[in-house]
Design a protein around this nucleic acid. Structure first.
Lengths: 229, 229
DNA sequence: AACGGTTTTTAACCAGTTTTAACACCCCTA
DNA sequence: TAGGGGTGTTAAAACTGGTTAAAAACCGTT
């Protein structure tokens, strides 16, 4: 799971950006100015920042500088309206990982984010991710692809494992179909969608014995892993 | 020391490039087509790639794709005659770190190389590979091709040794099939893939007595050496 | 060059995983 | 309440990997 902090003062663009990233399987937080962005960054854990350069109250460069004081290695992409030389230089000094000049295509943004994540290696995906989930009387170990149950453990296949992980990451929230498909199947085609339905059925079978936990469908949207305390 | 692989089909440009980089303190290898470039990459260790996009036999994108299967994090700069949009997208998909459109100044190239190296951190010094891995109650000595076990040590053959090393280097992450095949077998053909499966089975047999450690398969992707603490 | 032991590849068959397909059912809306 | 799209379920098909053993390649020694 990759959590992205999006700070963009244009609410429309910010919304579109945020939703598109979620569709592609990322978890995002949107802030509309630099100060709010910094508050968010201090209270929650993020793996990636996408920052507008020109913003009221606190500009993107200043924000990046402050963020980098807390986390020196977090990847940062700047969004900038102009492609001026001094902007580029300034950004590089702070340690920007990439630049996008408005207007840009969503596809290009996604590709750049993925390129940077690939380069920065698995260290972020690794240490940040939760590996153990308590599901009532069951325990799910993502790293071991194992679901521990009183009635006997289940070795999960990789698809089962990824899907259950994603449901757990969205515990008590709706996990959108397209987000899961893009994150796990890398493509939200019709057949992959049906494939996912098959896996949901399998997971339901595994979880059946634990009454406190079940996967419910949100018609037309996705699935929700519900845990009753 | 930073070793740069330069693949450029124009011998004049390639020569100038190569010499200029050497002047700046880099160690370079020049290849004049994609196939030769890939051969070089497989047999020697590099820290950086500068690839021409349009080349005979094997273009820069294809080459980069193959290189990235072996080393996912190695920085790549493309040299391209045109600055077309689809080229950019295609390059980003593969994970380009930067672009230079011909003609470019040598100075600009150097600056971009340095910027990327600064960004990707001081991990260029990989000449010191780890030789000893603790696998629960077992100890794997790569340099001695030896797996120490309570029940008796195992002398590993070179394929066993390389494969176990690669799994250990990717501890708790997925080691991709193609990456291993290209790195160890130097070729990801069908039969080599099957050969690898045979070796995975052998390693599993050696590791069987240690419950904390096992190789699990990530269907369609590769294998993951998991260590439970 | 021929031998014997070791390592690696090839082959065949089997087992497990994932996708596709088909059909039934449900939910929403016109 | 009829219709269409979304979902549940099951089973077969397609694909990928596990296992074993024999064949081939390799290597040092004679």
């Amino acid at each position: 799971m990759t959590r992205i902090l999006v700070v963009e003062d244009d609410p429309n663009l910010g919304q579109i950006l945020s939703e598109y990233l979620q569709l592609k399987g990322f978890v995002t937080t949107l802030c509309t100015d630099g100060e709010k962005g910094f508050e968010k960054f201090k209270t929650e854990k993020y793996d990636f920042c996408i920052l507008d350069v020109m913003m009221p109250k606190k500009d993107g460069f200043t924000l990046a500088k402050e963020i980098r004081e807390i986390d020196k290695t977090i990847p940062v992409i700047f969004l900038t309206a102009k492609s001026m030389k001094e902007d580029t230089i300034e950004g590089l000094k702070i340690g920007a990982d990439d630049y996008l000049t408005k207007p840009f295509s969503m596809e290009e943004l996604i590709l750049r984010v993925q390129a940077i994540l690939r380069r920065s290696g698995a260290k972020s995906d690794q240490s940040n991710t939760i590996n153990r989930f308590e599901l009532g009387g069951l325990t799910f170990h993502y790293d071991r692809s194992l679901l521990e149950r009183p009635s006997g453990d289940v070795k999960l296949t990789s698809r089962e494992n990824e899907l259950l992980k994603m449901l757990c990451d969205h515990m008590n929230q709706t996990m959108e179909r397209n987000a899961a498909l893009n994150a796990i199947w890398k493509d939200d085609s019709y057949f992959n969608a049906r494939s996912m339905d098959v896996y949901i059925a399998k997971l339901r079978k595994y979880l059946k014995e634990e009454e406190q936990v079940h996967i419910l469908t949100v018609h037309g949207q996705g699935f929700k892993l519900v845990k009753v305390e």
